[in-house]
Amino acid sequence: MTEHTEHTEQPENTEQPEPQTYSLSRYPETLAVVRLAAGAEIPLWAESSSVFSITATANETSLVCAGRSVPKKARHHKPFTAFCVDGALELTAVGVLVALLTPLAQAEIPVFTLSTFDTDWILVPTGMADKAEEAWRRSGHTVAPAVPA
């Protein structure tokens, strides 16, 4: 006679963890994203602002700078508004941009992102900045005007 033991499956934990929420600061400057040739020198008109970024690859050099002095003939997009994740983020943090970009993608808001050692920056077209704030607030994030440093 063979002994039969019943195996009952334990119900899986289907609860999803609460999504991580963040506080963001909105900066008032109008920014531009500029494309330069690979190895190009940074032009004198590239003025600093709340965020000033130079990213160089073998194929291009990109700038994020104040939009006010970018010549019309320069290959660029503007105006952008910058939002910064408040506080220092660990470089090992997982899912920060997913949590912040998903609500914007659902609201059909295009983005340009930057990361620094301490935090992440999200640039959105200035005409959609208020809509971005609304999308983030609906997702549990907070947004406030940036405090001048």
Rank of each mutant, 00 (worst) to 15 (best):
C65R: 03
A105R: 15
T113W: 07
T119G: 06
P43L: 15
A144F: 04
E108D: 15
F80K: 03
C84T: 14
S49F: 02
E18W: 01
E18D: 10
S25W: 04
T55F: 02
H141D: 12
H76T: 12
A107S: 05
G127N: 12
L89S: 13
V64P: 08
L114F: 08
R75F: 11
D130C: 00
L123W: 08
T113M: 07
E41W: 01
K73Y: 09
D86I: 11
L100V: 00
W121K: 14
L101A: 13
S53T: 11
F117V: 04
L104K: 01
S23W: 02
T102G: 01
I42L: 13
A82V: 07
R68P: 00
T30D: 14
L97C: 06
A82G: 09
A146I: 08
V70H: 08
A38W: 12
F83D: 14
T57C: 05
P148E: 14
A107E: 04
T14L: 11
A88G: 04
E29Y: 11
A107T: 05
A88H: 09
E15N: 10
H77G: 01
E108Q: 14
P125L: 03
R138V: 08
P148N: 10
E29S: 13
R35I: 02
G95R: 10
P79C: 11
V33I: 13
V64T: 09
V51K: 09
F117S: 03
R75C: 06
E108M: 01
I109L: 14
